[in-house]
Design a protein around this nucleic acid. Sequence first.
DNA 1: CATGTAACTGAACAAGCGTTCATTTGAAAA
DNA 2: TTTTCAAATGAACGCTTGTTCAGTTACATG
Lengths: 195, 195
Amino acid sequence: MARKQGSHSDITGPRVQDTALRLIARHGYAAVSMRQIAADVGVQAGALYNYTSDKQSLLFDLMRDHMADLLAALAAEDINGDAMTRLEAFTRFHIRYHLPRSDQVFVSYMELRNLLPENFTTIEGLRREYEDELEDILCAGEAEGLFAVPDTRVATMALIAMLTGLSHWYREGGRLDMNTIETIYWDLVRKSVSV
Amino acid sequence: MARKQGSHSDITGPRVQDTALRLIARHGYAAVSMRQIAADVGVQAGALYNYTSDKQSLLFDLMRDHMADLLAALAAEDINGDAMTRLEAFTRFHIRYHLPRSDQVFVSYMELRNLLPENFTTIEGLRREYEDELEDILCAGEAEGLFAVPDTRVATMALIAMLTGLSHWYREGGRLDMNTIETIYWDLVRKSVSV
DNA sequence: CATGTAACTGAACAAGCGTTCATTTGAAAA
DNA sequence: TTTTCAAATGAACGCTTGTTCAGTTACATG
């Protein structure tokens, strides 16, 4: 037997991506084999190579897609107003976007060291773009006299780490819902940078 | 040839731990082979089994030792006073302890999913102990009327993530020295929880 | 100097790795 | 109904994996 009933490129392709994302998030890139991914999709290992050139590309594509989607979603928010308004919008956007995508967040933070150097550079650049959006807001707030941050770069990294760390422990259906979490975090963020 | 000149258990043992820590921090547990560790130490792979029962124990011992040392160092600080004083002491201790130990921090955060279930439970318990020290301080500050945190547990996780995230990007010899960093972070932490 | 043994070698084991490719299949197009 | 070809199979490639162990070596002890 070769071709399965009802199997199509349109179906198997996304399933490969989804499965790879889930398994890599759970076990790590190096610990997941192409045969494991294939078995979960329901094909033989060789069939994966109809959808990816190699294992490295599978990882890189996941990370690049995540970062590209994130930046596109941020741009679509069209954040403006004074720095305080913009910071609140950014904070709430970050949480709302990341919380339902814990697998993507996990992979994008944990698997950087498994990227080939050129791929790493690409992803690092996309991350930097996102960080710079936040730093812009902090700089603006400083200029407007709304914020008092001794070093905008350090504050940016500190806030990103705080916000992204949320994805590592938050579980849906837990003690607190997303709206409550969002407000608690906004409170912490706002106070930490305010004059 | 078998036994090397001047070779001793007292020398090779620590070298195995040090090498494993460094390589795992750089490439990840699953991506590092026993043969790579052995080659870096300067022995054959089989010799490693004089110092560890298996690869999993090597990882677990690294993580348990790090957490145990961290808790011992925190206890030795003998932090007391009002909540604001205690929070400053905790913050500065955390940064001073973690910054020179970036490999340990990396491994302890990235390799949790590669622990066998029982080992994971042990490490998770040690982490929880450390987190609880911070939450105690936040609760005390709330009671003393010094702090205003809507949820001490969430604030604890947020602050730990912010502080630990520092280890992921800080590099010695960079733009800012440790003392400056320490003060910037203490400023962010203090304001974020203050009334 | 002789002896015991801790420390290490080097080969071996079965299993799994990423990847390639000739072959087979089944559904859509003619 | 026949033809076509995308989408699979399954075997094979050479290599690496964690781990074991009989044998070898160099040092400490008597």
